[in-house]
């Protein structure tokens, strides 16, 4: 009986090891068997990042909290949702969802009354941004939805 149990675990160990290595061989990331590719690729300094922002009557842009952007406190999830919505042509729906959360949260964002929400991609030199607060080198609006006074 002991011998059988020992062999059972030996077989299980070999199978689990094989299962964990399989995604590496196939170069296919999944869950929970993974190639663990996070932060593994070289990344250029200049990248395009998604965001959802509030715009006030002066045209100034105000950053929204994670909760307002994605209804979630996880930046990885919120960023992925925005990225997928833009890539999947659903930026307008995301914009409307953000707008409803902003409206539900109150009249102002950072003390300013927003007139619209924009779902955007902004291209930054991230090193310059971190060190010198550099402005985006490019900006594209994928969806704009009026709120409050802008409606």
């Amino acid at each position: 009986m002991d011998r059988l149990r020992t062999h059972r675990w030996a077989i299980a160990t070999v199978m689990v090891a094989a299962a964990m290595v399989t995604p590496v061989v196939l170069d296919r990331d999944s869950f929970p068997l993974s190639t663990y590719p996070m932060y593994a690729r070289a990344r250029p300094a200049e990248v395009t990042l998604p965001a959802a922002v509030a715009v006030d009557g002066e045209g100034d842009v105000h950053r929204l909290s994670l909760e307002l952007v994605g209804g979630n406190d996880d930046p990885l999830i919120v960023a992925a949702e925005l990225r997928d919505a833009i890539a999947g042509g659903r930026a307008d729906r995301t914009c409307a969802a953000v707008a409803s959360r902003v409206e539900a949260a109150g009249d102002t964002v950072d003390g300013h009354r927003p007139v619209a929400i924009e779902v955007v991609t902004e291209r930054y030199d991230t090193v310059d941004r971190v060190l010198d607060e550099a402005d985006p080198v490019a900006r594209r609006v994928h969806a704009r939805c009026p709120i409050g006074d802008g409606r």
Binding site: L49, R63, S65, G70, V78, E122, R129
Partner: peptide, 8 residues
Amino acid sequence: ATRLELLG
């Protein structure tokens, strides 16, 4: 750092 900042 930039991604976090853009997400408020």
